[in-house]
Computed example of a mutant assay.
Amino acid sequence: MKLVSHYHGNETLRKSFMQLAFDIFGIDFESWHELGYWGERYIPFSYADGDRIVANVSVNELDFIIEGKSFKALQIGTVMTHLEYRNKGLSASLMNHVLDMYEGKYDFMYLFANASVLDFYPKFGFEELEEYQYSTRISAGQGGFDLRKLKLADDLHLIEKIVYGRVPISKTFSTNNSFGITMYHILNIFTDHLYYHAEEDAVVIFTKENGAVQLYDIISTAPVNIKNIIDCLGDIDKIEFHFTPDDSNLQYQCVPFKRDGALFVKKGAGLEFPRFVKHPFLSEA
């Protein structure tokens, strides 16, 4: 076996990686790659047995915005091992390689672990941290500017322009340079939940469940007035945010966020991860 990385230009290794990701997680990277969204900021570090990818730890290079300041962040994801190659220490070896490669180069390293591996990442210096979700109550049926439902077949260029030129959604806590991850979510998860707010020139991503809106993202190339967005969401009385809002004109309730698994963070010397924040859903790898 050999350790390989930066191989998305190698068709054989890339397709083997994609097959492993599909087999383990059901992740389909094909259209994401074909449309050019697998950029230089997404890097798999893998063990290859010949031309077959058998274990992997990927990194996403992005930035945190914390209280208006930018910090280098590294999100780890797609940690996987082929069933035939497990219990050989391959994932641990790749994790140590990544940590060595990026030691001192990033302010924060972090990942989202599922419930079955919560005891794995503390061995590498990661600390489990609690997230918090914000919600607000509003008066139903306020009306406002109409939203236009987007279709990928017709509106992909518009979506790309806004995603690649976006400004951080929150100065309190958000991410930047995460366009590749965001486009994966748009292509594979939220295809039927994309809307355009022409007045704010924003892509709005939300679902409605039991009279409440799950607001996943507001993507724009300039700061928006969230109240203008909320006013056009229709007959609802509650909005739950899947990012950290910082519009002081709204009254928020903040409660611990429960996910299937946990957020783990490894901090640089002298740095603290902010409390009472929610990592943006569309930046999760």
Rank of each mutant, 00 (worst) to 15 (best):
N56S: 05
S58W: 07
V59T: 12
N60Q: 12
L62R: 13
D63N: 12
F64W: 09
I65V: 14
E67R: 08
G68A: 10
F71L: 11
F71I: 08
F71Q: 07
F71D: 08
K72E: 05
A73F: 07
A73C: 10
T78D: 05
T78F: 04
H82L: 04
L83C: 07
L83R: 15
E84Y: 10
Y85V: 00
L90H: 06
S91V: 05
S91R: 00
A92T: 06
S93Y: 09
N96W: 03
N96D: 15
D100V: 01
M101A: 11
M101K: 12
M101C: 11
E103D: 15
G104I: 01
K105C: 04
F108L: 12
M109H: 01
L111G: 04
F112H: 06
A113I: 01
N114L: 06
L118N: 13
D119M: 01
Y121G: 09
Y121I: 09
Y121K: 09
K123E: 12
F124M: 13
G125H: 11
L129F: 10
E130A: 14
Y132N: 11
Q133P: 05
Q133V: 08
Y134C: 05
R137H: 13
R137F: 13
R137G: 09
S139V: 14
G143E: 10
G144Q: 07
F145C: 15
D146H: 08
D146N: 09
K149H: 13
K151T: 07
D154K: 08
D154Y: 05
L156V: 05
L156A: 00
I159R: 02
E160V: 09
E160N: 13
I162H: 02
I162F: 01
R166F: 03
V167W: 07
I169A: 05
I169C: 04
S170L: 04
S170R: 04
K171I: 04
T172V: 10
